[in-house]
Design a protein around this nucleic acid. Structure first.
Lengths: 154, 154
DNA sequence: AACGATTATCTTAGTTCTAAGATTCAAAGT
DNA sequence: ACTTTGAATCTTAGAACTAAGATAATCGTT
């Protein structure tokens, strides 16, 4: 632990955590409000977006991509299936596993609503100039990677 | 809508949202894991921290500070009260209103665990240099303010 | 082939919140 | 004083997950 512990350093960290939380909440609220108009949650949308861009994925792959528990994937896919937007497909090589895939209705819906969603996000992030967005993206990527890697030690 | 809509701009926004979400999740997971050792959630800790630094607050003030619904404040304060860490105090001038305040046990607990919490956060945010943290804080503050202000139009 | 360890998903029970409306009191206008 | 409007908190019902463990299939060793 190099120079940690000084009062300034600590306060800087606390402040960064606060603004990180607030920024995320505010932006996520916009995204959520946009998506809720179509009867979807952010997580459901996240699954649909992943399947839209990557094609069918094993449930475990999906789980890592959207960061939920295994039970969460089950729950979310059940809901999307009940809405007719996604479905499970058996995996040929492994009878334990299932692929998640969009139905044609799901594909149609995500294609229809994605542009408006992207625009809503763009508006929510409009407080930064393109250069600032670039910088922020770099820093947040670095921050997220470090924090995620340090997850293990206990 | 100035220059929105171009493909690069849209992708930049999507990417920023993704890294923002991931960074926040990863850091919040650390904070939560640290706090959970004391049987508290992040929201409960947030209330205690606010009351610790600012003294007794009206429930409505607390609500704005930690960004929950009114029902959420009721729920959280009930839980802290059940643990003996916080309590409600009547407001003299307005019989509808209550102050939330830490009990002496609550004050003792937050005083005890706050340093370790700050250290955990500092470690989680350690992927950035002090200068980078400064920059990130500035950008996120700007981003959050803009997104929060744009909340209204519907 | 049979065993144990691992992996993929599902199940059950419970936690932590939110949304919408009810209640209670205050403030302002008439 | 009365009435309306608004503000502060609470209540009820339910949504959206998580944690822990159960089930079932695969893989690697023996």
């Amino acid at each position: 632990m190099s120079n940690s512990g000084s009062k300034e350093t600590t306060e800087q960290a606390l402040k960064l955590f606060v603004v990180l939380s607030r920024a995320h909440n505010a932006v996520a609220a916009h995204a959520q409000a946009d998506i809720a108009r179509h009867g979807l949650t952010l997580m459901e949308f996240g699954i649909m977006e992943a399947l839209h861009h990557r094609g069918p994925l094993l449930l475990g792959e999906l789980q890592k991509k959207i960061l939920v528990t295994s039970g969460g994937v089950t729950y979310l896919l059940d809901r999307l299936a009940a809405k007719g937007l996604a479905e499970r497909r058996r995996c040929e090589h492994d009878r334990r596993a299932y692929y998640a895939a969009l139905t044609s209705e799901g594909e149609a819906l995500i294609t229809e609503i994605f542009p408006a969603h992207a625009a809503a996000l763009e508006a929510a992030l409009g407080g930064l100039t393109p250069e600032e967005k670039e910088t922020a993206t770099e820093l947040l990527r670095k921050l997220g990677r470090h924090a995620a890697e340090a997850e293990k030690p206990a």
